[in-house]
Amino acid sequence: DHWHVHIDGERIRLDGASEEFIRTLEELIRRGTDARELKEIIKEYLR
């Protein structure tokens, strides 16, 4: 599956992301997590 998110107007691909990770991201977004912080979390995950 190819997922991607838009954060700060930037399109970030989440290739190979699990549904669990996507749900976690959605939860963080709902909580109002800062965009820079979200991008860091995604970069760490994709390593």
Rank of each mutant, 00 (worst) to 15 (best):
L14A: 04
I41P: 00
R31P: 01
I12R: 01
A17K: 02
W3I: 13
H6K: 10
H2P: 10
I7D: 01
L28H: 08
E40P: 01
I7C: 01
Y45Q: 12
L28F: 06
A17Y: 05
G9F: 03
L46M: 13
E40W: 07
D34S: 12
F21Q: 03
L25H: 00
S18A: 12
H6Q: 10
R47C: 09
R36V: 13
A17F: 09
D34N: 13
I42G: 00
E27N: 09
E19W: 07
H6M: 14
K43T: 12
D1M: 09
G9V: 03
L46Q: 08
I29Y: 03
L28M: 14
E40K: 11
R23K: 15
E44F: 03
E37Q: 14
R11G: 10
I12Y: 06
R47T: 14
E40G: 06
S18R: 05
E10C: 02
G16A: 04
I7A: 02
E27A: 08
S18Y: 04
E37M: 12
D1Y: 05
W3S: 11
D15S: 10
I42H: 00
R31S: 13
H2V: 08
D8E: 12
E27S: 09
D34C: 05
L38W: 01
G9I: 03
G16F: 12
A17N: 04
L46P: 07
I29S: 03
L38P: 00
D15K: 09
L46Y: 14
V5S: 02
L38S: 00
L38M: 05
E20R: 06
F21N: 01
E19G: 11
F21P: 00
E44D: 14
F21H: 01
F21C: 01
V5W: 02
E20F: 05
H4G: 04
R23F: 07
L46C: 01
I12A: 02
R30K: 12
R36K: 14
A35K: 08
R31I: 12
W3D: 10
D34H: 12
G32Y: 03
D1N: 15
I42F: 02
H4M: 04
L28V: 05
E27W: 04
I41H: 05
F21Y: 03
T33P: 02
R11A: 05
G16R: 10
D34R: 08
E10Q: 05
E20G: 09
I29A: 04
T33Y: 02
E37N: 08
E44A: 09
